[in-house]
Every structure is written in structure tokens, then in C-alpha cells.
Design a protein around this nucleic acid. Structure first.
Lengths: 170, 170
DNA sequence: GGTAACATGTAAGCGGTTACATGATTAG
DNA sequence: CTAATCATGTAACCGCTTACATGTTACC
């Protein structure tokens, strides 16, 4: 994030929330110790840059920091897909529930993805701008998020429709 | 899982790996203490059922365990979507990489989803069987996984094609 | 004058993982 | 005979979260 121009801990946290939060999160408490550690390893350098009397510390990547970033991005490590989602977990076990309550759960999962799509569409203009400035991958990951959740929505909707038809039939 | 008929810790672990691992995982070390805790709370009961001289402890849900399961499934808690994926994280920052290496990363993410689709298709017959026996939601979550990864594949492929065309153009 | 946003920090604790450890049984 | 599978257990540790704590500046 520092490499993309986000300078302070506070800014980094905001950038995370408005860009990669679809597939990664960090807590505020995690940021400042991490920045300290990176500075110890000379991967970033920080200097104090208060705005008025308000304390503020801004960081930039060192040459070795940028190299480490590239090395990590291209290290060829396995990328095991690991999703941890209570919504889908509950849905898996929904047969243990009376039909009406299972339908509510399904609906909650569907609405959630619908909302995610809307949220992501809001970020889209910013991502398109970044794309024009030579940063095309944020737009790709955004499109990935949208495609993902649209697939969820249509699959849930199809299932719900099927269930409803069966329900009416009996 | 016990409610679905998986009786021992070992069986539960296997069931997780072959069904919900697309959106949830547990480690082997987590299972036995969890089972102890659930037994303390009278949500499950365990009894020893060795096969020959091989130690084996099987569990079943108590009435209050089944009630607790249903209560949890229908508790109406928010279901915040939280995905944590190194693949997408790396992809987001791929602009920091030379074009060829970025393309490799994209390809790795694409292949990963392609493999996931194949893996999930293998489970499909089992899920269809469960569906016929009145457990339809496992099949839904499976379809969700397939739809999800197919969307990833097509979105990545589209992006790669676009990039390649541009690359040839210059 | 008050709320929201800016900005940084720490202590305590928890959920979960990795790694280690052991032994029985089945299939080739 | 030996590798894979069945089966259970624990110790050490770590990344991360929640909650707490503090002060500044901008805006209505």
C-alpha cells in the first residue's frame, strides 16, 4: 500500500477498507507494530510529518523494500484457496432447519452478495482511474469480486425459485 | 457433522475435507478438544466403540445439541462476508511486477480456480445423492463453489486476452 | 459547542495452527 | 513386509482481534 502512495498508518487502513477488503482485512491495532517491524528490517523508512500539532508518521518504501515486494509477488508459492465464511457454512447445514427458516437463511446470503455487488460498483470509477494511470490489476480484482458475487446471487436465486415451485406443488 | 451422521473425530475431519472445505477448514488438533468441550456442555454424548483393539470414540447429538444447532443456524446474526486470499491479494499488487511475471501470477490464479472446479465436480454425484435423500443444501453450496470459480476463470481469461492483445499492439 | 474524522498507540487474550507423539489395522 | 489408512491425543506458539487509551482538527 505504501508502494501505491498511501503514506501513514491511518491512510493505509483506509486504503485497505476501500480496496482489498473484499479479500483481505487488517485491524487498526495490527498496523503500527507492523510498520515498526518493517522499519526495523529497513524495508520501509518512516519520518515524522505532523499536520499542525497532530502527530503523524509517514512511510515510504526503500529500494530493498520494493525488491522484497516484487520477490514476494513472484515467489511462485502455492496459492491455496482458502475461504472462511459463516454464511456458506450455515447454508450447508440448513437442512436441519424448518423450510421457512432455511429459506430466510438463503435469502440472507443472497442479499449479502447483492449488497456486496453494489458496494463494489461504487469503487469501480476509482479503479478505472487507477487503470488509466497504469495500475490495471486493482480493476481486475474488483471485477473478480463483482463476478464472484453475481454468480452467488444468480445461483441462490435459481435454487430459491426451484424450492418455491416444489413448495407450491405439495 | 455429527448431526449428518459422521460419528468419530476422524470421520468428522474427513467429512470436512470432502464437503465444506471450499468455505471452511478445521485442523485435526482442533477436533478432539472441541468434542470434549461439546460433551462437557451436554450438546453431544460420546461413547467408546473400538474397532478391534483400535481405540475409537463415537459421538451423537443430544436433544439440546440439536436445538443449539438449529438456534445457531437461525440466530439472525449478521453474516459479514470475509474472504482472506493470498492469490487475490498478490494479484491486486501485480502492477509492481514486470508484465511477464504479472501474467504468470494471473495464470496461477486462473489455474487454481480451474482446478477447484474440477475438484468440486468430483464431489457432485455424492451431493446429488444427498439431495435425493432430503439434504439439498450441500448441493447448493457445491453449486455456489462451482459458480464462484467459473466466474473467476472467465474473468481472468477475459483480462488475460485483453492484455495479450494490447501487448501485441505495441 | 459538539460530533465526526484524523491519528497513533498498547495490553490482554483467544482461536487456531504446526509439530510432535503413539499405536492398530488393512491392502498390496 | 511395508505403506497407507484408521484413530487419538497434546504442547508450544503465533497472528490477530477486541478493547482500551489519548489527543487534534475540521465542520456544522
Amino acid at each position: 500500500m505504501i508502494g501505491l502512495g498511501y503514506r501513514s498508518g491511518y491512510e493505509i487502513k483506509q486504503a485497505v477498507e476501500s480496496s482489498i477488503r473484499f479479500f483481505w482485512t487488517i485491524s487498526q491495532a495490527q498496523i503500527y507494530p507492523s510498520l515498526d517491524r518493517l522499519a526495523d528490517e529497513r524495508l520501509v523508512t518512516g519520518r515524522s510529518e505532523p499536520s499542525g500539532r497532530r502527530a503523524r508518521r509517514v512511510y515510504s518504501l526503500t529500494a530493498s523494500g520494493r525488491a522484497a515486494l516484487r520477490a514476494w509477488l513472484a515467489d511462485g508459492e502455492e496459492l491455496p484457496f482458502e475461504l472462511r465464511d459463516v454464511g456458506l457454512l450455515k447454508l450447508f447445514f440448513a437442512d436441519a432447519l424448518p423450510d421457512a427458516e432455511a429459506a430466510d437463511l438463503l435469502d440472507a446470503v443472497l442479499r449479502r452478495s447483492r449488497e456486496m455487488v453494489e458496494t463494489l460498483r461504487v469503487i469501480e470509477p476509482a479503479a478505472r482511474e487507477a487503470d488509466e494511470e497504469g495500475n490495471g490489476y486493482p480493476l481486475l480484482t474488483l471485477e473478480l469480486g463483482i463476478a464472484f458475487h453475481e454468480a452467488m446471487v444468480s445461483t441462490c436465486a435459481r435454487f430459491a425459485a426451484r424450492r418455491e415451485k416444489e413448495g407450491t406443488g405439495t
